[in-house]
């Protein structure tokens, strides 16, 4: 019996993938100077953290309310700005408003690049260019939101039902009118839910933004981490987590109401 007649007929493929993965893994272990011995030796450190983390400082909560509200305000503002900016770009990245494939590809490429920049690097860059402060935080959030939602929106536009477009085209509407009257009603609900999704992401990302001084609750987190006050760190994380859960529930309720 030949091996090509058995269930192992693609053994060389499996072997190739396994070997490639093993090679990459081995290489990355060597390259990152992984030392599991050290990890095992210092694992008691982790338990120290865990013990501190397990006793969050609830008394600290009172001083977190204001920064959290600030974070929510920054996120809301940044989200709205980002989404408003994303909508026209998303339309330009599809063939709905422009028949020119070159324009479409240029816009897609641009959106891809924006999406690629990690938000922390973006924040650091903006802090350097504009200066430290809450305004920079809002702009970072707006750009980050822009990157996330423009992608989602143009993917949605591509999947819509094209028949209203054809009938609009038949009565001689121009491209802009089609976008507003035939496409927008179909994607409005999706755009709204992407906005809420982005808002949630932004609240989560506030931890990171504080690290570069861009305002909000993240600044408190950075402070607590710097002072090794892990019981506070956990309190902040817990608080952010709770707020994200609430934001999620509220946005779910609003979306259901609007449907």
């Amino acid at each position: 019996m030949k091996i090509k007649d058995t269930v192992h007929f693609q053994w060389y493929k499996t072997l190739f993938v396994a070997a490639l993965l093993a090679l990459c893994l081995f290489g990355s272990i060597r390259y990152t100077q992984a030392d599991f011995g050290q990890l095992a030796g210092n694992i008691s450190q982790v338990s120290v953290f865990l013990r501190k983390l397990a006793n969050p400082d609830f008394g600290y909560l009172g001083r977190l309310i204001d920064p959290m509200i600030k974070t929510l305000k920054m996120s809301a503002l940044g989200t709205v700005l980002g989404v408003l900016l994303a909508i026209p770009f998303a339309f330009l990245a599809t063939t709905v408003v422009t028949d020119n494939p070159v324009v479409t590809h240029i816009f897609r490429f641009f959106l891809n690049i924006i999406r690629t920049i990690p938000n922390l690097l973006l924040a650091a860059l903006l802090v350097a260019v504009i200066g430290i402060g809450e305004a920079t935080g809002v702009i970072t959030i707006a750009i980050f939101t822009f990157g996330v939602t423009s992608q989602l929106i143009f993917e949605t536009i591509e999947t819509i039902d094209m028949s209203p477009l054809e009938s609009a085209m038949a009565v001689g509407a121009n491209k802009l009118k089609i976008a507003v009257w035939a496409v927008w009603p179909q994607i409005a609900a999706s755009v709204l839910s992407y906005a809420f999704y982005a808002f949630e992401l932004n609240v989560r990302a506030s931890t990171v933004l504080g690290y570069v001084g861009a305002g909000g609750i993240g600044v408190k987190l950075n402070e607590a981490l710097g002072l090794f006050r892990y019981e506070r760190v956990f309190m902040i994380i817990l608080f952010i987590f709770a707020v994200v859960v609430i934001v999620d529930a509220v946005s779910e309720a609003i979306r259901r109401r609007l449907r």
Binding site: K73, M74, L77, I132, G133, A135, T136, V138, G215
Partner: peptide
């Protein structure tokens, strides 16, 4: 939201 954000930067 925009009101008391510190735009001073």
């Amino acid at each position: 939201c925009a009101w008391d954000i510190d735009w001073s930067s």
